[in-house]
């Protein structure tokens, strides 16, 4: 991923900043220009709590190139306690025996390196709570 694109996504990747609709209070992550619930166009920026639960999960055994040294690894759809759903890696889960409904929290981790000498991309991953 280009460095500039990663940089633009710091508010979400680093600080979990969501757009909360001022009209109906729905949380959007990542932010969007129009609320899909009430069509509102005014939002407040708020950081999501870092806790949620697993809605679904799988194991990636044939990964994209930047993640080849990490396979096999767990991916999950997480429903955050503030409402938004995110797709992310789940790490520090031992043998990978994740369960639907399991509580997790987001931690700050390395996502991948551009190359041995390239920039390091950081962001969130889920770990068992």
């Amino acid at each position: 991923m280009p460095t500039a694109r990663t940089w633009r996504e710091y508010p979400q990747r680093y600080r979990y900043e969501a757009a909360v609709c001022k009209k109906c209070n729905k949380w959007h992550f990542p932010p969007r220009p129009v609320c899909d619930a009430c069509k509102g166009e005014e939002f407040e920026t708020k950081a999501m709590r870092r806790t949620g639960k697993i809605l679904s999960h799988t194991v990636i055994r044939v990964p994209p190139a930047p993640f080849k040294d990490q396979a096999p690894y767990a991916m999950a759809v997480i429903e955050m306690d503030d409402g938004p759903r995110i797709t992310t890696q789940v790490v520090d889960c031992g043998d990978g025996s994740l369960k639907i409904g399991q509580k997790v929290k987001l931690e700050f981790r390395r996502i991948y390196d551009d190359s041995e000498a390239g920039s390091i991309n950081y962001g969130y991953k889920a770990v068992p709570a």
Binding site: Q70, V91, D92, F108, R109, R110, Y122
Partner: peptide
């Protein structure tokens, strides 16, 4: 440290 942990990630979590 796990492969995705380094001084920066550990520092962010400690700072939080």
């Amino acid at each position: 440290p796990a492969p995705d942990q380094d001084v920066i990630t550990l520092s962010v979590e400690a700072a939080r």
